[in-house]
Design a protein around this nucleic acid. Structure first.
Lengths: 333, 333
DNA sequence: TTGTATGCGTTATCAG
DNA sequence: CTGATAACGCATACAA
């Protein structure tokens, strides 16, 4: 691969002049710029971003940590972030932590060692500890989707309480009075808040909750399957359940099918986050859909704002969910 | 952020000794290693991979270009690649080209300029031209899912001809004799081969094909919607269609629903590639599923083999699809 | 087993 | 408007 010196030699200028042409910094005459650009083309010169980053401390690279790449919510977040980053000439490392703090830490280290200029993190846990290395390295970061107590950072959130309330109210409006909740990990802000919204709605309607109807686990299909079974371990059964995310709902559906229970005939089901392809195939699940693409795009914008003004106070952007009513929670018989 | 010199100073050794401890290269006494490791911990030292790569020409970074991050097939490929790369201590840039050659070229440039050691590419077009910069930069690459004529590179493929034949034969076995095909872009190997497999199966069964039943377009939902409409523009209609990928099938389903046609009652539908979440929610689509995770993992393995032996002749690995029969193509009435 | 000198490719800084 | 010089942080080559 050609270097900036070879380009300079061929164009008959100094390396720094080539640098100026590439970066559009400083002055260059029309004349020399033409010559340099031609030399670049002829040699198929590709600037070495490593060397550039080493000297200038600007790598034009961001990192994005999501907790599940196979979840359409997160891939859509990634698209939003990627588009926004690319628009600004930044590349984006997309990393999948799988809700696993150890994996998250390995990626954080990998990204810091690659000197990314900023990080967008969907935290795998609500502990502040794992984020400390990022803060101490002085690398700006934005949290998406989940809060972390005692961490001062920009934040892009959905409204979990309101969304869960919407879903629960929908079930109530369909006549359900025995409503269960399949929740996410205890301590994770979205999971805690979704349970809270669910409880608020039911309590406002004067509806009782059996303890076994409320289950918590990971945001994964297997957990949905398991929690649904636990929920139905013994009577009385709920007539409907609210799953705290789409993966939980998909797992719950498998458990219900296995027991020969039909949705919505035998059991109503609603959840947070859409499953777009599935909904195209069959508009079935009633969901509180979040503007995932915006999550990513807004997070990158916040990050850029912070990069250009490091002292600006942390901002929080809340993007409300939208209730999409489909067939999975029809009127209670 | 601390540098290797600060670590060395604190440990009372030379920088090169720290380097040796970090990389496990050369000899270091137990004693000094302990001291160095402690200094690293105390200073929260994070090695600068840019500097390391500049000097050693090893960045421990790969690039993966997929054509659609929101398609579960590609996210699963990405997971396979990522897991395999991480196991070897490599990070992976995951980039989404959106089936757009211009976008693909921008990412290729971004990745070359970051001096990735290798690339895994799902080519957005079957032209060799766009891949030339990679070859000329001397960066090894593996093609996944699609062939590119006149490019000597390692290759991970599904068996498109066989898969399409399986799907078509399934439709024939259900009694269908008027079978359409919604195909991918003309010239793209998977798209061409899937049409070929479809034609082989029908011709072997002595079944005729109306020209309007065979449509080709992008591997995207909108195309599926449009092609399905074109397919039904005028009688005679097919009684079933074979979509060349999952996105096309999802779009086709929307078009059918819009016309009030029920699948499988009024129209059979099968496609290449699964839609895992949707199939969990409702085991509906009959598909030729490909081992997507293996695509990614095998591609990374091939890349590593080539990195360690650049002169080895290009390999091609073919991973066969599996027919999963569900309800979307029941017996013809 | 450890250290010294040097250079990877680029840009910041200062000069002209 | 252009150039010379040095330095970014690390690892290679060679010495001790």
């Amino acid at each position: 691969m050609a270097t900036i010196r070879e380009v300079a030699a061929r164009a008959g200028v100094a390396p720094i002049t080539v640098s100026r042409v590439i970066n559009g910094s400083g002055y260059t005459s029309e004349e020399t710029r033409k010559r340099v650009e031609e030399a670049i083309r002829e040699l198929e010169y590709v600037p070495n971003v490593l060397a550039r980053g080493l000297r200038s401390r600007r790598t034009h690279t961001l990192g994005l940590l999501v907790t599940d790449v196979t979840n359409p919510f997160w891939t859509t977040v990634a698209r939003g972030a990627e588009d926004e980053a690319m628009r600004a000439g930044y590349a984006l490392f997309l990393c999948n932590t799988d809700e696993d703090v150890a994996k998250q830490q390995r990626y954080i280290h990998a990204l810091l060692s690659r000197r990314v200029e900023g990080l967008i993190i969907a935290p795998a846990s609500s502990e502040a500890g794992p984020l400390r290395p990022v803060a101490r390295a002085g690398v700006p970061f934005v949290l998406v989707d989940r809060r972390v107590p005692d961490v001062a950072a920009d934040l892009v959130l959905g409204d979990s309480v309101a969304g869960a309330r919407l879903l629960a109210e929908h079930l109530l409006s369909q006549g359900h009075r025995r409503i269960g909740h399949l929740g996410g990990p205890v301590g994770l802000s979205t999971a805690d808040e979704r349970e809270q919204g669910y409880r608020q709605a039911l309590s406002a309607a004067g509806v009782e909750i059996e303890p076994q109807w409320v289950q918590r686990g990971e945001y994964k299909q297997e957990a949905g399957y398991r929690l649904m079974q636990a929920c139905l371990a013994q009577p009385p059964w709920p007539t409907a359940v609210l799953a705290a995310n789409n993966a939980l709902a998909v797992g719950a559906l498998a458990a219900l099918r296995e027991r020969g229970l039909n949705v919505p005939r035998d059991m109503g089901l609603v959840c947070f986050d859409d499953v777009p392809q599935a909904s195209q195939i069959d508009p079935f699940l009633t969901v509180a859909a979040q503007p995932a693409y915006e999550f990513g795009a807004v997070a990158v914008r916040l990050l850029f704002e912070r990069l250009s003004d490091p002292k600006r106070p942390p901002q929080t952007v809340v993007l409300p969910p939208e209730l999409i009513v489909r067939r999975s929670a029809g009127p209670l018989n």
